[in-house]
């Protein structure tokens, strides 16, 4: 199939291959750094217990945002807002379900026979 891209198409800021390539490379570098950081925390025994959970959780959160931004191209400024809202609503549901489940199960567990 021939290349159907019109030759005279207007140039849009951020819509060229070089720019998008850079975005993937930035994503990869950041993700590599964050991943290595997270593994280093455990390998080098930098944190333990609750501090480990908080630190690792924070790194994971940042990395997830990096993936969403640079690989999945989620873009708060230019995205279709209604659609994005529904997607972001998922975050609320996830929080309710995960935190609720953990809260309930740990609360019940205290009363279990050893």
């Amino acid at each position: 199939m021939s290349n159907r891209i019109p030759a005279e198409r207007p140039v849009i800021e951020g819509e060229d291959e070089g720019h998008e390539r850079r975005s993937y490379v930035i994503g990869l570098v950041l993700a590599l750094a964050l991943t290595t950081g997270a593994f280093a925390v455990v390998w080098l025994d930098l944190l333990s217990g609750v501090a480990a959970l908080a630190g690792l959780g924070l790194l994971a959160l940042i990395q997830a945002v990096v993936h969403l931004r640079y690989f999945l191209h989620i873009d708060l400024q230019r995205s279709h807002r209604d659609d994005l809202l529904l997607i972001l609503f998922t975050v609320l549901i996830l929080l309710i379900m995960v935190s609720g489940t953990i809260w309930i199960l740990y609360d019940q567990h205290v009363r279990m026979m050893p």
């Binding site: 609320l92 549901i93 309710i96 379900m97 609720g100 809260w103 609360d107 019940q108 205290v110 009363r111």
Partner: peptide, 20 residues
């Protein structure tokens, strides 16, 4: 939205603490 935040009332008697 609220319908996602009330599921525990189906098992009030299952042994979690009164606050929950």
């Amino acid at each position: 939205v609220l319908s996602f935040a009330v599921w525990l009332h189906h098992f009030f008697t299952m042994g979690q603490s009164a606050n929950v």
